[in-house]
Design a protein around this nucleic acid. Structure first.
Length: 601
RNA sequence: GCCCCUGUAGCUCAAUGGAUAGAGCAUCGGCCUUCUAAGCCGACGGUUGUGGGUUCGACUCCCGCCGGGGGUACCA
C-alpha cells in the first residue's frame, strides 16, 4: 500500500546520495512502535557504520552520524503524498501518514473483501498437512487435541495465505498396542460395549489399562501367575500373527472395533470444525513399504544384512559423508522381514509426492520424533526426491499433567471429551445470568463455542515447540488473555452494530482520530502481513497473539471512544464503519485459530 | 558420549538484529444512570541461566559452561 511513497522517497535519496556523496545502505522499513500516531520508520545506522569502516566518518560516532544523515534526509524528503510529517530522531527517520487518506481506504478494503480480507495471493505450490494421527482403540486425549488443533490452524493459515492445501490424517490402526486391546476385548468383554461413541472410547481405555496390567511382569510373581501371563502374551502374539496372515475372523473383529475409534475421531474432529481430505491408514502402507525396501537396496542406499540374521539398514551419516554421528543408522526392515514406522513413513511420503503431487509436506507430530523425521527426510533426499527439502516436521511440545506425563497404560489420561464437556458447562454457568434473553438452544451452542474456544486458545497461545502442563483451571479460564476475551470483543462490536442498525455503506474519516482509534486502524491494516508471517513460519501463535492484541485495543477503544453517541453524524458513520471492519478482522483471525465468533455471549 | 529442544517478572507466556524487553495470572487501588464489567484505567514486579565473541546496536546470531526435557539400529 505504501509502495509509491517508498519509491518516491528512494528517488529523493538517490539525488541526495549524489549531491552529498553518501552511500546509502538498503533501507528496511517497519512500522513505528506505536506512540499514538501511525507511520513507518527506517534507520541510517548501517549507512553510518559503513562510512566508519571506510574511514569517511570524520571521527564522528556512528549514532551521531546516523542522526545527521536522518536530518539530511528529512530535509530533502519534503512533501510526499499521504505523509503528514517527517521527523528525524535517534538516527531513525519516521514518516507519519496523513490518516484521513488511508483510514477510509483500509476500512473500505476490509468491508469490501469481508471474509477474504487478509487472504494472500494464490501460490503455485501444493501443501499437505498431516495431523490427527491417533492410534485406534486408544482414546482421544488432550495431547491428541493439541495435535489436531495445531494441525488444523496451520492448514487454515497456509490455505488462507494462498497455498493449495490438503489435510491428511494418518491413524495408527495396527500395531501391538491395537492388538492388545483387541485381544482383551475378544477374550473378556466381547459384546459388552456401550453404544455411545464416547462412552465406548472410555471403556476401551479401561480395557487397555487392564490388559496392560495382565501382561506386565510383576515383582515376586508366583509360578502360576507367570504361566498365566505368558499364556496371555502368547495369545496376543498369535492374534497379531493371524492379523498379519489376513485371518478373516481376526480381520473382521479388527475392522469392527477400528470403526468405533474412527467414529469417535470423526465426531471430535467435526466438533472442532475439522474436515480431513485424505485418510491414510498405517495398515494400508504396510505392503508398499516392503517394496520400497527392495528399491533402496537396489539403489545402494540401504544395506541388507539379512543373510547374517540382521535387519535392512541405511547408514545415513556414512552416505552423507558425515564424520560426527548425527542422523545415525536407521533400521528400515526388521530381521524377520516386518516393516517399521520409518518404512511406512517412507512409503507414505512417496505416495504424497507421486500420487498427490505435493510440493511441501508438513508433519504435525510431537517433538519426541525429531530424529525419526530427520532420518526419514534424509533418506528421501538420498533416494532422490527434490521435495524432501520442503518436508517439515512441525514438532510440538508434549502435553503433560501437573502430576507427570499422561499414560494410557496406567490409565492416567485426561480425555478431550471430558474437558470439552466441562468447558461447556462452565461457560453455560457464566452465561445464564448474563444473557437472560437468549434461547436455551442458542445458549448451549454459544457455551460450546466459548468453552472450546478457551481450550483451543490455550493450546495455540504457546509456541509450537514448548511443552504444555495442562491445568484445567488455567486452560479453561475465561479472563484475560483467552479466547472468550477475544470473542467478547467481537460480541461487543456486534452489539454496537445491532443497536445502530448496521454500519453505513460509506463514510469519510475527517475527524481527529483518538489514539485508540489510530491504533485500531494500525492493527487491522497489518492483518495481511501477519497472516503471511504466520504462514511463512508455520506458527499459529503469531495469529493468536495478533487476535489478542486486536481485541485488547478494541476493548480500550470501546471504553474511551463513543460510537453511537459520537459527536456528529459523520463521526458516528465513520466509527461504525471502523467497528464493522474490526469485527470482520476479529472474525477472520478467530477462524484461522479454529475458534467460532458468537453473536452474543 | 552424541543429537534435538528449552532457560525472559513470584507463576504461565510474548517480543522480523533496532527506539524505554511486553501481556495475562497473582497482589494492591480506582471505574457499571453511556454502545455487554468475560471489560476498562492505574500500581507493584527484570543483571533475559552463565562467561566470552560478532555488530553502530544482541532476549534474538556464533562458541564454551550450567540447569530442565526428549531422543539415541530392529517400539510407535
Amino acid at each position: 500500500m505504501f509502495d509509491t511513497q517508498q519509491k518516491d522517497i528512494q528517488a529523493k535519496l538517490n539525488t541526495l546520495a549524489k549531491k552529498k556523496a553518501i552511500k546509502f545502505a538498503p533501507l528496511k522499513w517497519q512500522p513505528i512502535p506505536f506512540n499514538g500516531e501511525w507511520g513507518i520508520t527506517t534507520t541510517f545506522f548501517q549507512t553510518a557504520a559503513n562510512e566508519a569502516k571506510d574511514g569517511k566518518n570524520k571521527g564522528m560516532p556512528v549514532p551521531q552520524r546516523a542522526q545527521e544523515i536522518a536530518e539530511h534526509v528529512k530535509g530533502v524528503v519534503g512533501g510526499v503524498e499521504g505523509i503528514s510529517h517527517v521527523e528525524a530522531v535517534n538516527g531513525y527517520l519516521n514518516l507519519y501518514f496523513s490518516t484521513e487518506t488511508y483510514v477510509s481506504r483500509i476500512v473500505n478494503l476490509i468491508l469490501d473483501q469481508g471474509a477474504d480480507y487478509g487472504r494472500g495471493p494464490k501460490k503455485d505450490e501444493r501443501i499437505m498437512v498431516e495431523y490427527a494421527q491417533p492410534n485406534t482403540l486408544h482414546s482421544f486425549h488432550i495431547g491428541h487435541a493439541r495435535n489436531a488443533i495445531l494441525g488444523e490452524s496451520l492448514a487454515r493459515i497456509v490455505e488462507f495465505s494462498g497455498f493449495e492445501t490438503i489435510r491428511a490424517s494418518y491413524p495408527g490402526d495396527i500395531g501391538l498396542g491395537v492388538i492388545t486391546v483387541l485381544w482383551a476385548y475378544n477374550k473378556f468383554y466381547k459384546g459388552q460395549e456401550p453404544q455411545d461413541v464416547h462412552e465406548r472410547g472410555q471403556w476401551l481405555l479401561k480395557i487397555y489399562t487392564e490388559a496392560t496390567a495382565l501382561l506386565e511382569e510383576k515383582e515376586a510373581e508366583s509360578p502360576d501367575d507367570k504361566a498365566q501371563r505368558e499364556e496371555y502374551d502368547a495369545e496376543r502374539r498369535d492374534m497379531y500373527r493371524k492379523w498379519d496372515e489376513g485371518d478373516p475372523a481376526v480381520r473382521a473383529l479388527w475392522l469392527e472395533t477400528r470403526e468405533w475409534s474412527l467414529e469417535e475421531l470423526r465426531d471430535i474432529l467435526s466438533m472442532l470444525g475439522i474436515k480431513i481430505d485424505e485418510w491414510f491408514y498405517e495398515s494400508e502402507v504396510d505392503k508398499p513399504s516392503k517394496a520400497i525396501v527392495d528399491e533402496l537396496i537396489k539403489k545402494g542406499i540401504a544395506d541388507d544384512e539379512r543373510a547374517d540374521g540382521g535387519p535392512v539398514i541405511v547408514k545415513i551419516d556414512e552416505k552423507l559423508g558425515l564424520k560426527k554421528e548425527k542422523y545415525r543408522t536407521a533400521v528400515i526392515l526388521r530381521s524377520d522381514g516386518t516393516s517399521l514406522y520409518l518404512t511406512k513413513d517412507l512409503a507414505l511420503a512417496k505416495e504424497k509426492f507421486e500420487k498427490y503431487n505435493v510440493d511441501r509436506s508438513i508433519y504435525v507430530v510431537d517433538n519426541r520424533q525429531s530424529l525419526h523425521f530427520q532420518q526419514a527426510f534424509k533418506i528421501l533426499e538420498l533416494w532422490g526426491f527434490p521435495q524432501a527439502e520442503k518436508c517439515y516436521h512441525l514438532a510440538y511440545g508434549f502435553v503433560t499433567l501437573p502430576e507427570g506425563a499422561m499414560s494410557a497404560r496406567s490409565g492416567r489420561v485426561v480425555l478431550f471429551k471430558d474437558v470439552a464437556d466441562q468447558a461447556q458447562r462452565r461457560a453455560l454457568a457464566a452465561m445464564t445470568e448474563r444473557t437472560p434473553e437468549m434461547s436455551s438452544k442458542d445458549r448451549i451452542k454459544v457455551a460450546q463455542q466459548i468453552g472450546l474456544g478457551a481450550l483451543i486458545y490455550t493450546m495455540l497461545s504457546v509456541d509450537n515447540n514448548k511443552d504444555i502442563v495442562f491445568n484445567i483451571d488455567d486452560a479453561l479460564s475465561f479472563d484475560g488473555r483467552t479466547a472468550p476475551y477475544i470473542q467478547n470483543a467481537f460480541v461487543r462490536a456486534n452489539s454496537i452494530l445491532r443497536k445502530a442498525g448496521g454500519a453505513p455503506d460509506s463514510a469519510s474519516f475527517e475527524h481527529k482520530l483518538a489514539p485508540d482509534e489510530t491504533q485500531l486502524i494500525d492493527l487491522i491494516s497489518r492483518f495481511p502481513s501477519t497472516v503471511e508471517q504466520a504462514a511463512n513460519e508455520y506458527r499459529p501463535l503469531v495469529i493468536a497473539t495478533y487476535a489478542y492484541d486486536l481485541a485488547n485495543t478494541f476493548h480500550s477503544f470501546y471504553h474511551s471512544v463513543p460510537v453511537i453517541k459520537a459527536e456528529g453524524a459523520e463521526v458516528q458513520a465513520a466509527r461504525l464503519r471502523l467497528v464493522a471492519a474490526t469485527q470482520q478482522v476479529l472474525e477472520n483471525a478467530l477462524r484461522l485459530l479454529v475458534i467460532n465468533a458468537p453473536e452474543g455471549m
